[in-house]
Design a protein around this nucleic acid. Structure first.
Lengths: 251, 251
DNA sequence: GCAAAAGTGTTGGGCCTACACCCATGA
DNA sequence: TCATGGGTGTAGGCCCAACACTTTTGC
């Protein structure tokens, strides 16, 4: 959304695609809840989604990967382009200049910018959130507690969640949100968190096992209170197969 | 994909969003086949999808509507943004300059452009295809007969078809592709054309009637050979309801 | 021993698939 | 009258949703 940051131009001399930005909705799963990474702008009370610009010598997908890598430290993550936001009123220029004038020179803002939205699914445990130069923090937020965001980022988040739900409803997805080994209740709660509703544990287990996308391991998770749950891992071959054939529906 | 056409600048003095274009995949249904509108560039053997640039004072959606209106004459049509194409190799600049050098000054091409893809569903009978200034014709093509297109337009078409199939598989869609009154075999062949496979007519009819999205009219279609088929029309209220609740699956 | 979460089976109904013959019409 | 496409019903299986009690563990 900015024409060019002085730093970028002077230090790296990178040419950017003008008026085009990229915003990332990074989802993680922890404490039985779906969370999203938000940045807090330096010396302001304002939050927004991680985002950035697109360089002239990189594809959109590469730009998204770069931004993800910068914010999470992760390399190979599940990434989906879901929508491009191109209305005229994506942000109020005057309000933004006031809110962020101390960080970005007001004349560097375009009258409008088009933003390509990506969402990512990451393993919460493996992420080390990393703020960018203009942010003082980068933190996980529960969906329900997400505050008013700058620009049209609340709308972008909404649409990302909708796209995620849609994708989940006809494909397996969890592989990217869960650790290597996980329990059936873990997986079920992930589905519940994304779909926003309760699932019957017996029916869920039957459905997942029948699809064949997970293998039961000869281990249980120890050290947790109450009965020790069995551990599972994804059968990546079968998972890919089901992805292609679309054989796992949730509504 | 062009920086600015001389005509646009001189006649209308319109500011355009640089390096951003918009391509439309316009689907129609006729002769039991799904068709797509293609332009043929003047004095060349080359075809491509209808497309255009985005003005600084219009949203992406408005730009898509404008382009659709220009090519088809239609106002209120079903339009979906489905993907934004942003790889570096979307076209070979030298090849394009050679192919289209007589139409667009070579120095007006950007090194790269990002293109937002929309697809539209239109009533074939109501469309009057209208070439743009740089094209000598604008015609319907059967999907199977679509030739090699310029830029990455074959890929864009592929992806549009995929998005259309996906959408059709969990929502009713036909309303925008069929005329006001239509027969059940018409509708079934539309589904067959989009999904690319045969459907059982008894099961299809049961499913559609059960969903309630169509009303049987007290008329039959006369003047056709063989038994006169009943006419139906969409129940728009019920249709919207099913759209929201996602109650009509096809796989 | 007690509280909390994990694990597990059955039944009924609805939906989907597969399948074939008669009917109406225009030529 | 004939060729062609339109119109229609049933039966079987699969899948899904609903539903509750026992087991294991840490405390």
């Amino acid at each position: 959304m900015i024409k060019e940051s002085k730093k970028e131009v002077s230090l790296e001399n990178l040419a950017l695609v003008p008026q085009l930005t990229l915003d990332c909705v990074i989802f993680g799963f922890h404490d039985n809840a779906l969370k999203v990474l938000l940045l807090k702008w330096k010396q302001t009370p304002y939050h927004s989604l991680p985002g950035g610009t697109v360089r002239q010598d990189e594809s959109l997908d590469d730009a998204a990967k770069r931004i993800l890598k910068e914010r999470t430290g992760l390399d190979k993550i599940f990434l989906r382009q879901f929508h491009t936001f191109g209305s005229l009123q994506r942000y109020n220029l005057e309000r933004i200049k006031t809110a962020l004038g101390h960080l970005i020179q007001p004349e560097l803002w375009y009258e409008r910018a088009i933003s390509v939205g990506y969402y990512a699914l990451v393993d919460y445990e493996e992420v080390f959130p990393n703020p960018d130069d203009l942010s003082e923090s980068c933190d996980w937020w529960e969906l329900k507690e997400v505050p008013d965001l700058l620009f049209d980022h609340n709308e972008i988040l909404e649409k990302a969640l909708h796209a995620l739900r849609l994708e989940l409803s006809f494909q397996p997805i969890g592989l990217n949100l869960l650790p290597e080994k996980f329990t059936m209740p873990d997986m079920m709660r992930m589905y519940e968190a994304i779909l926003g509703k309760k699932i019957d544990p017996r029916n869920f287990q039957k459905k997942i096992l029948k699809s064949g996308i997970v293998n039961k391991l000869d281990q249980v998770k120890r050290g947790v209170a109450h009965k020790s749950p069995y551990l599972y891992s994804f059968d990546k071959e079968k998972y890919k197969e089901v992805l292609k054939e679309g054989g796992l529906f949730f509504t």
